Amino acid sequence: MVTHAPRPTAELKAATPRRTIGMRDSRGYRVFRVANAAALIALCALMLYPFITVLAQSFSSEGAIKAGKVSFLPVGFNVETYRAVVGDGTFWRNYANTFTYTVVGTLIAMVLTTTFAFVLSKPHLRGRNLLIGIAVFTMFFNGGIVPNYVLISALGMKNTMWSIVLPGAMSVFNLLVMKSFFESLPKDLEEAAQIDGLGWFGIFFRIVLPLSKAIIATMVLFYAVAYWNDWFAAFLYLDQSDKFPVTLFLRNLIAGASTTASEGAAAAGTTTAAVSANIQAVTMILTIIPILCVYPFVQRHFVKGVMLGSVKG
C-alpha cells in the first residue's frame, strides 16, 4: 500500500486561487461622481428654495414681505397670521372637506384600479385588447370642459361630493402600471390556488393583493396627492363655499390678493397686499403638511412599486 505524503504548505498556497482585488475607480469616474453629486445637490436646492421661501414668509412680518427682504430666514418673526388662519372656521371646514374627498376618492379609485387591472392582466380574457384600447383612448381624448359640466349637472352630481370624487376615479396611467405589475406575478401561485379550490375572488384577495403592497402604496400616494391638490373640479362643480376644498379656499385667497393688487391698491393698500401674501404663505404651509406627513410612510415602497410596475410594457 502506497501512501502519498501531504502537499507542502507552500504548494497548497500556490494552488489556492488568489482573491480578486477590486480595481480602483478611474480619475474620470471620480470626477463624474463629484459632478453628479454637485448637480443633484444644486437641483435639490433649486426645488427646495420655493418651499423654504414660503415657510420663511409665513413667519415674517408684513413689512418685511412688502420690502422683499424675506428669502431663507424669517424677518420680523410673526405668528399672528397662523393664529388668525387657525381660528378661521371656514378654513377648517374646507380642510375637513379636502380630507373627506381625498379619503373617499382614493378608496374608490383603488377599488376600481386594482380590480380592472387584475382583469386586464389575464391574457385569456375575451375582448382584453379592446378594453385596453378603450382605456388608452381616454388618455388622449376627452369630452372637454363644457360636455363634462353638462354631464355632471344632468346626473345630479353638481354641488355634491361625487362631482369631485367620481370624474377622476381612475387614472389610466396608474391602471397600466398596476396591470404590468400583476402580469409579472408568478402564474404558478394562481395555478396552485386553483388546485386548492380558490376562485378568482379568493386568488385576488388572498394572493394577489398581499403580494402587491409596494404597488398599492405607490398608487395610494398618487391618488391621494392628486385629490388633495385638485381645486379645478371644485371650481367648476361647486357653488356652495361650505363644500369647497382647502385648495379652492387657497386659490380664491390668491386670486383675491391678485385682484386687489391689479386694482391699484399701491397707494393705500400695500400693507394689505403684504398681509395677503403672509396669509397665502401660512395657508400654503398648512395645506401641504398632511402630504408631507404621508410621504415618509410610503417612501420606501414608492420607487420599488414604480419600478416593479414598469418592468413590462
Rank of each mutant, 00 (worst) to 15 (best):
M1Y: 11
V2Q: 09
H4V: 15
A14S: 04
R18N: 11
T20F: 04
R27I: 14
V31Y: 00
R33A: 05
A35T: 11
P50G: 05
S60D: 04
S61A: 12
A64Q: 08
A64K: 04
K66E: 12
G68T: 07
F72K: 02
V75T: 11
V75H: 07
G76M: 02
E80N: 13
Y82R: 04
R83H: 08
V86L: 15
D88L: 02
W92L: 14
T98R: 02
T100I: 15
Y101N: 10
A117R: 05
S121G: 08
L125W: 12
G133S: 11
V136H: 00
T138F: 12
G144I: 10
M161E: 08
P167V: 04
G168Y: 04
G168A: 13
A169D: 04
M170Y: 06
M178N: 00
K179I: 00
F181S: 07
E183G: 01
P186Q: 07
P186T: 10
D188E: 15
E190N: 10
E191L: 11
A192V: 07
I195K: 00
D196F: 06
I203C: 13
L211M: 15
L211W: 08
A214Y: 01
A217M: 14
A217F: 13
T218E: 03
V220P: 02
V220L: 14
F222W: 13
F222Q: 02
W228M: 06
D230S: 13
D230A: 12
F235L: 15
Q240C: 00
S241W: 03
K243Q: 12
K243W: 04
F244R: 05
L248P: 05
N252V: 04
L253W: 00
A257V: 14
T259S: 13
T259P: 00
T259M: 12
A261C: 04
T270H: 02
A273G: 08
S276Y: 07
N278A: 15
N278H: 12
I279T: 12
I279E: 09
T283L: 02
L286E: 06
I289S: 00
I289R: 01
P290D: 03
V294R: 00
F297H: 02
Q299K: 14
V303N: 13
V303I: 15
M307P: 00
